[in-house]
């Protein structure tokens, strides 16, 4: 069993407009993360629904989940915000969740 007990992890969830998940993943990878998982979602925010010829169009979103080491969280989230934050076209919103247990993370052991 890979020993990951020395590390504590955080989960960064980033919600971006659809098509910008790659920007988030690339930024996270550049800042030290190893990748991420993307799934599709649908935003229902108050400013989100646009009327288009009287047909309301739901905004399509992508959610990026990135599991990172806790000491690297700040660095990676800054990278993500810089590349796909609210001021950019991706309109990204990131949250960080604490991870209490994790298994299956093998790539951090390869370095050492």
């Amino acid at each position: 069993m890979a020993d990951t007990s020395n590390f504590e992890f955080s989960l960064i969830m980033t919600i971006v407009n659809r098509g910008f998940a790659d920007v988030v993943v690339d930024a996270a990878r550049e800042a030290g993360a190893r990748g991420g998982t993307v799934f599709y979602a649908r935003g229902t925010g108050i400013h989100e629904i646009e009327k288009f010829f009287a047909v309301s169009i739901q905004p399509e979103k992508e959610v990026v989940m990135t599991l990172v080491r806790r000491d690297e969280t700040q660095k990676i989230i800054h990278g993500i915000v810089k590349a796909a934050g609210l001021n950019t076209e991706g309109r990204g919103l990131s949250i960080v969740l604490p991870v209490s247990n994790a298994v299956g993370i093998t790539h951090y052991n390869e370095d050492e």
């Binding site: 604490p98 247990n101 994790a102 299956g104």
Partner: peptide, 10 residues
């Protein structure tokens, strides 16, 4: 490696 991951969030 590449078999998947699992983790818990409180």
């Amino acid at each position: 490696p590449d078999k998947g991951i699992a983790f818990t969030v409180p």
